[in-house]
């Protein structure tokens, strides 16, 4: 939409031949962008509508109460212990625990990496790190999951009590996955800082470390937070890699090294095995709806942070 607004206004359009050609081009370009935007809007609206209509039928048609669904800690959709029970608290807990922990592990690393690239060794540091970070972002999640299952899980099993599978393994895998997201956002923010800010700090006699910790970091903090929120949103939505290393037991675990589940891992695990329109299937759609709702909150957070960011 921005590009359309910035389109140069036609001045002196009296010469008819030239005007017509320009006008036609302009109209074509304009309708093309309109179609693209409209298509996007239609797609988004239909996805939201579809997921909502499926997800809400758990509550309206299958008669599950919202509070039982969100705060119930028993998940027994097949009715193995009598009546089916749909409590997704363990999955919500698992999703939040893994993505928060992943952000906690990844943020310091990413911030240091971006400081290294922009402030400490801007020359070869950036040349070396930038491709590495981009490479990390390009690795498919199934590869992360498989490496996690083959390398990380046995390591955790040998070092810590438990089977190695669990929230710790999940958040470690996720932290590597969201590292590029946070790093690239932080690097962009750091390199777009006005030079004057740093130079005046140096002129006042501050050391490099003082400049970084007192001037640069506080200034770019909202941008870095944006990066962290974006990273968390990615971690929250990641399904495959987490599902491979987390164990998928539908319970709130007693430790970081005990089998647990996330919203996404349960959806991918059960979706193909359930019949469309059954209560179990509807419950999975409700979880998808909850996931989507969380994504909206993350986007909202990013918007708020961006607003604060405008100096």
């Amino acid at each position: 939409m921005k590009t359309m607004d910035e389109r140069p206004v036609q001045v002196g359009s009296a010469r008819s031949g030239r005007f017509k050609k320009h006008h036609a081009e302009d109209l074509a370009g304009r309708s093309y962008t309109f179609i693209c935007v409209a298509l996007l809007i239609v797609i988004i609206i239909s996805i939201v509508f579809f997921v909502a209509s499926k997800g809400l039928s758990t509550f309206f048609r299958d008669g599950v109460s919202v509070s039982d669904f969100l705060f119930g800690s028993t998940w027994d959709p097949e009715g193995n212990q009598g009546d089916p029970v749909y409590g997704v608290l363990p999955f919500i807990f698992g999703s939040f625990a893994t993505s928060l922990l992943a952000a906690l592990i990844a943020s310091p690393l990413s911030i240091c990496a971006s400081l290294f690239m922009t402030e400490i060794v801007p020359g070869w540091g950036k040349k070396l790190l930038q491709p590495v970070i981009e490479l990390l972002a390009g690795i498919p999640s199934v590869v992360y999951g498989f490496v996690g299952l083959t390398v990380l899980v046995p390591f955790l099993r040998n070092v810590f009590p438990g089977q190695g599978i669990g929230i710790a393994a999940g958040s470690l895998v996720l932290s590597v996955m969201i590292l590029p997201t946070i790093t690239s956002v932080a690097t962009d923010a750091l390199s777009s800082l006005p030079r004057g800010l740093k130079e005046s700090s140096f002129a006042l006699g501050a050391t490099r470390w003082q400049t970084i910790s007192r001037v640069i970091l506080p200034t770019v903090l909202p941008s870095i937070l944006t990066g962290i929120v974006l990273g968390m949103a990615r971690a929250f939505g990641e399904a495959l890699a987490v599902q491979m290393v987390i164990g998928n037991a539908p319970h709130i675990p007693r430790s970081l090294f005990e089998s647990a589940s996330t919203l996404t891992s349960v959806i991918t695990l059960d979706m193909g095995n359930t019949v469309m329109g059954s209560a179990h299937n509807d419950a999975l759609w409700s979880m998808a709806l909850a996931l989507m709702f969380m994504t909206f909150i993350f986007v909202l957070l990013v918007r708020l942070l961006e607003r604060r960011n405008r100096i």
């Binding site: 027994d76 193995n80 037991a249 319970h251 675990p253």
Partner: peptide, 8 residues
């Protein structure tokens, strides 16, 4: 039922 600590 799915036991605590079991892997799926």
């Amino acid at each position: 039922e799915d036991l605590k600590g079991s892997i799926q």
